[in-house]
Design a protein around this nucleic acid. Sequence first.
DNA 1: TCTGGGGTCCTAGGACCC
DNA 2: TCTGGGGTCCTAGGACCC
Length: 413
Amino acid sequence: MIRRIAHLDMDAFYASVELLRYPQLQGLPVVIGGGRRPDDETLSQNFEHQSLNRIPLDAFPRLAGYTGRGVITTATYAARQFGVGSALGLMKAAKLCPQAILLPVDFAEYRKYSRAFKAVITDIAPLMEDRGVDEVYIDFTHVPGGQREGGRVLARLIQKAIFDATGLTCSVGVAPNKLLAKMASEFNKPNGIAILHESEIEAKIWPLACRKINGIGPKADEKLKKHGIETIGQLASQDLQWLIDHFGQKTGAWLHDAAHGRDERAIVLESEPVSVSRETSFDRDLHAVRDKAELTRIFTGLCEQVAADLQRKGYVGKTIGIKLRYADFKSVTRDQTLDSYTADPKRIRHTAGQCLKRVPLEQRLRLLGVRVGNLAKAGNPESYIRNMAVAQIERARAATNLIASDVREGQLF
DNA sequence: TCTGGGGTCCTAGGACCC
DNA sequence: TCTGGGGTCCTAGGACCC
């Protein structure tokens, strides 16, 4: 049986969810904007006394005159015509397309739809890997219909089931592995299906830019270009040893495999979080001394949020860290590992405060973040016992080392 | 008028142990 | 006294992804 892995990607997910709520915005340039807006209230709260689809167009806020640090999270196709898209600063976008409607990000709503479409998928094909709010991998191999027409029959079924349940469309790529499935899902956007067979790698993958490989970002792409390598085909023609010499053992071997479409990674059904963090960019750059009161308030707030996140999710952590971004956009991190687990806001605040003392604070700051890593499940007796056992062994080892060193130095007796 | 927020993984050096 | 090598943990930074 041929391994068939699907990558499913919701089409313009946030924007599509907003258009379900506000169908009157269909076809108009709409930008969904990050972060803080002057009022910080959601439209739906502003207009909760009305039926949402009857809110008149001129009641929606426009991009024109926007001030603030937000960026575009996503934009409708009508807005993209004006050259505005993901990650563009909203003030720049306001110049390019002042008439665009600006909606605040509503993660709670997107998560609702995210859960809904994933539930539809697992009902049909239970082996699903969560890749964020709008993306999943699915193992089609042993699912009824998963082998028919190379997976197209099952892909079509899932698309239809998602649309019936949510009104949203998605694009699906089916291939022998995750790497190729991810690339294939881009071939027929939106609302498309692409089947990619191993025999088609040369014809369909090699002409693509290296950047299309999931894992090659701007830096690696730049470095490849410096060596005259622009396409995946050119990358595939490089000698393995040459790639290892220039990119290191691990990355070099990975680049070689990826270019040849090789990827053995399994579908990951469940995973434990590694860290929990909160960070915020300020409306204006703040100075550690002059704006101390405000910074302190924000800092404590972040610690409390992280603690609340941990407690809500049922985790405790051992490594507390901070992140600072200076006015010049350079960032630094500091962290400290405790000798026991915690989710206590006061303990997190205290430790994060210690970290803050180890960082230069002359320059103004634009961002502050707090992170807790080294997580373990809270209140899970098994992990509790394991943690206690580890602590006991550590104490015993410390005592033994002490004794050993005393013996070495002849101080024990 | 630059450049969000929440993550994961990798690397590399140093400490410390065996 | 000098030398070595593997393993693990901690810390800082950075690339990358959604």
